[in-house]
Design a protein around this nucleic acid. Structure first.
Length: 418
RNA sequence: GUGGCUGUAGCUCAGUGGUAGAGCCCCGGAUUGUGAUUCCGGUUGUCGCGGGUUCAAGCCCCGUCAGCCACCCCA
């Protein structure tokens, strides 16, 4: 009995439609990044497990796809790109003019339970500016993130970018006598505040010597709490993007390493999922690579954004169009006389050499079947090669009209009409 | 890691403890050089898997696996 195989939990097959959809998202990521002068890079998919332990602590190992290789090295499928970037940037820091504007599109792995918008394997767009302290770098990344969304067809009624400033919270904590490790605990409380009952938050804050009222008061101060936020907002507004921006000091991001402005893109109305997030991490490159360099960046995963595209009318329409366009051919060669197959192959090749996408039936099939196949292939033209060769028929499948032509004129005729 | 729901044809799903079903898709034909529609015919099932109750289980019970959803977490 044949053994039935299926994908491992949390892993996906990409059939052609799915693959077209994935590549459509990749193309948007890539083209917008290039519009901002970013260059593409890539790192290894397998890294030493210690690289991630160094950045995130020992407990991270539970969520890694990690194992021992044949040389008894502890290795992990990469769960994120930032540590790799930090290593690469530090290792050859003298080779590149600053700031680095680097982006990457790659596959990542996390050993955790599969659910909507989250698998054990996913693709992620990473975009970072390294070696630039100016707050305008943060604004540049936020503008890029907004452009990604609009390029996919989202409008201001679909999403917001919520921006905050980690350093404003650190100042706030210090002013209120919270130091050292308590600061990390405090930031975690703020991060989870939205989804924690108020009494519980009050209790957690009071053990740190604070009150909920005081914290809420700080959150409502918005831009006044941070000159950085004011500068970012001013820059985004000069770009005509202020309608997408919302200052929300309640965002702090769970990660310990953020040191300045942080931001998240949220969808509006479809469940308020975060589709992208990032911020400034000025100390991480020194921690991993030993070379101090300022940096900021953000990431967007393929799963949540693709779900959101499919659920939103305008982006979904653009995606559908792209999938069809990606898979259709220009012309379908119909072989009406099997004895002419050499001539048919020559014509097919001639069209392909001219850059047209061309299909033809590989096995002898009745003519009506070939026309049906031509129709389904999305071809605009059917080229009929039969006993009358070198006379050819070019049939326009959308207009249902046809003309006769010859191999010498064929390419020109098709160029004229398409 | 915790909990809820679901699992029947390639897909979407019906199925009252008593012979396994429909629609769609796919393939062939009607139709030997022109696409649609229609009509005819055809393939596809260890009913997720294992055990139990019963004269009899797709249906009830237990377990298990997988999927979806929520929580935890989220680099």
């Amino acid at each position: 009995m044949a053994q039935r195989f299926q994908t491992l939990p949390g892993f996906r097959d990409f059939y052609p439609d799915d693959c077209s959809a994935r590549n459509y998202v990749f193309e948007k990521w890539r083209s917008v990044a290039r519009r901002y002068g970013f260059v593409e890079y890539e790192g290894p998919i397998l890294e030493p497990t210690d690289l991630y332990r160094r950045k995130s602590g020992a407990e991270i190992v539970n969520q890694l796809f990690c194992f021992q290789d044949k040389g008894e090295r502890d290795v992990s499928m990469r769960p994120e790109l930032t540590p790799t970037l930090a290593r690469m940037a530090a290792a050859r820091q003298r080779d590149f003019r600053k700031p680095l504007r680097w982006f990457s599109i790659g596959q990542f792995f996390r050993y955790e339970k599969h659910q909507k918008g989250r698998g054990r394997e996913f693709y992620q767009f990473n975009c970072d500016i390294v070696g630039e302290e100016s707050i305008l770098a943060d604004a540049e990344l936020m503008a890029l993130a907004i452009d990604l969304m609009t390029a996919l067809g989202f409008s201001e009624s679909d999403f917001r970018i919520r921006v905050s400033d980690r350093s404003a919270w650190i100042d706030f904590a210090t002013r209120n006598g919270i130091e050292g490790e308590d600061q990390t605990t405090f930031l975690q409380v703020i991060d989870r505040m939205e989804r924690t009952p108020a009494e519980k938050v009050e209790e957690q804050l009071s053990s740190l010597g604070l009150t909920l009222a005081k914290v809420r008061d700080f959150i409502t101060s918005g831009c006044d709490a941070s000159p950085s936020l004011r500068a970012i907002l001013d820059d985004l507004s000069a770009r005509g993007m202020e309608r997408f921006v919302e200052v929300d000091l309640g965002i702090v991001r769970g990660l310990a390493y953020y040191t300045g402005p942080v931001f998240e893109i949220f969808d509006i109305g479809k469940g308020m999922r975060a589709v992208a997030g990032g911020g400034r991490y000025d100390q991480l490159i020194e921690l991993i690579g030993g070379v101090p360099m300022a940096a900021c960046g953000f990431a967007m995963g393929d799963m949540v954004i693709t779900d959101l595209i499919r659920e939103t009318a305008c982006p979904a329409g653009l995606l559908e169009k792209a999938i069809i366009e990606n898979q259709r051919v220009d012309a379908y060669l119909i072989l009406a006389d099997p004895d002419r197959h050499r001539e048919g192959s020559a014509v097919t090749q001639q069209l392909r050499d001219a850059g047209f996408r061309v299909l033809s039936s590989l096995s002898a099939t009745k003519v009506p079947k070939q026309f049906q196949a031509a129709e389904l292939s999305g071809a605009k033209f059917a080229i009929v090669v039969g006993s009358e060769f070198p006379e050819l028929t070019i049939r326009n499948l959308t207009e249902r009209s046809e003309i006769t032509s010859s191999p010498a004129q064929l390419v020109e005729e098709l160029r004229k009409k398409s």
